[in-house]
């Protein structure tokens, strides 16, 4: 079956300066009820891997360095 990739903007922004995933932190990855976040091993930061956000905020609230900002997804904004 032929396939293509669609680009989408995702609502979770991670501040690379503040994120401490390179030190082994995975708090946001663990707190997401939908399991949407992942760690980019090359960059050493967390990022939003899947566009399935409920904008519920545990990732932002639980982040120990306040590195995460959750916006309302563009379709709803």
């Amino acid at each position: 079956m032929p396939m293509t990739m669609n680009r989408v903007s995702v609502p979770v922004t991670v501040n690379a300066e503040k994120c401490i995933a390179d030190k082994g932190c995975t708090v946001c990855v663990e707190s997401c009820p939908l399991d949407l976040l992942a760690i980019d091993m090359a960059k050493g930061t967390a990022y939003m891997k899947y566009d399935e956000c409920w904008y519920c905020l545990p990732c932002e609230k639980d982040c120990p360095t306040e590195a995460i900002r959750v916006d309302i997804p563009y379709l709803l904004r």
């Binding site: 009820p33 939908l34 399935e52 409920w54 519920c56 379709l75």
Partner: peptide, 13 residues
């Protein structure tokens, strides 16, 4: 009605 699959009232999980 937004068409956003995960924009549900309930936690979409």
């Amino acid at each position: 009605s937004s068409g956003y699959l995960f924009g549900t009232y309930e936690n979409p999980t």
